[in-house]
Design a protein around this nucleic acid. Structure first.
Lengths: 131, 131
DNA sequence: ACGTTACTACGAAGCTATTCGTTTGTCAAG
DNA sequence: CTTGACAAACGAATAGCTTCGTAGTAACGT
């Protein structure tokens, strides 16, 4: 039975960028991650490497060292981390009011009619299933 | 005509706690802020003072020095900052998908039936007025 | 076998955030 | 005028984040 690990800490901005790559690509080498990151932002290879090493220490990613080029993978699925981040901001900046957070999100970036419809569908689900 | 200031930077965790106090209390002295903060978390007076001074440099707060005990006030209204923070997280962690952010927020902290109803009302408004 | 390439590991520098002790200044009460 | 209370300012220590150069090492082609 594996030891129960505490939740990993909230990722920093740089770490989150890397996690995004890993979520999209799945298990990846440093080179893979670096290529994806460098497309958005001038960055040295070793910078990405170092970040991934730190993230492994923090348990944000897992590392497979069986190949010479180590393979990194996000330790938590995207949805889990997104839930943490949303919940964290909800508490820190919105006093726990989901309504305020949603209002903030919508006013920050106008959603399309299509997206609004999807969101309303989502709430239907919640009102029903959530009891 | 006042010079146009660039937007203030994203507040850190500690800064956000102080902003929360200022939003609730309105213009306050360091002593006021310290008392409010210390209720939640053991903190020295000078720590709060220093943070407020840094926040003034960053333009997160304005300072009125006319009294011996300077009076600090949030530079931006709560809603403005909340919109920034929500938009920032939306981009950084949710790829701009408001739907995902809302899903994250709701799964992080179950909303009450009453709150869900309010949120649905909010979406009504948006679907209608937003056009 | 040997040089070149592709990795990881290490360490350090620069910056920001956080915390708090100490100093300095102001004001008012005695 | 001296003292005590209260305030801002300053400086320093620590920790975390970010970046990258350099060194070491394994594998690969010829």
């Amino acid at each position: 039975m594996p030891a129960k690990m505490p939740d990993p800490p909230r990722p920093t901005d740089g770490e989150l960028e890397i996690l995004t790559v890993l979520w999209e690509r799945g298990p990846s080498t440093v080179r893979d991650v670096h290529e994806a990151v460098a497309r958005r932002k001038a960055t040295q290879y070793t910078t990405v490497l170092k970040l991934l090493q730190i993230m492994a220490e923090k348990r944000l990613v897992r590392r497979d060292e069986r190949q010479r080029a180590h393979v990194y993978e996000a330790d938590r699925p995207r949805e889990w981390t997104q839930r943490q981040l949303a919940g964290d901001l909800l508490q820190r900046a919105f006093g726990g009011s989901a309504k305020s957070l949603i209002l903030g999100a919508l006013s920050a970036r106008k959603a399309s009619a299509k997206e609004l419809a999807e969101i309303r569908g989502l709430l239907e689900e919640y009102a029903k299933g959530g009891r």
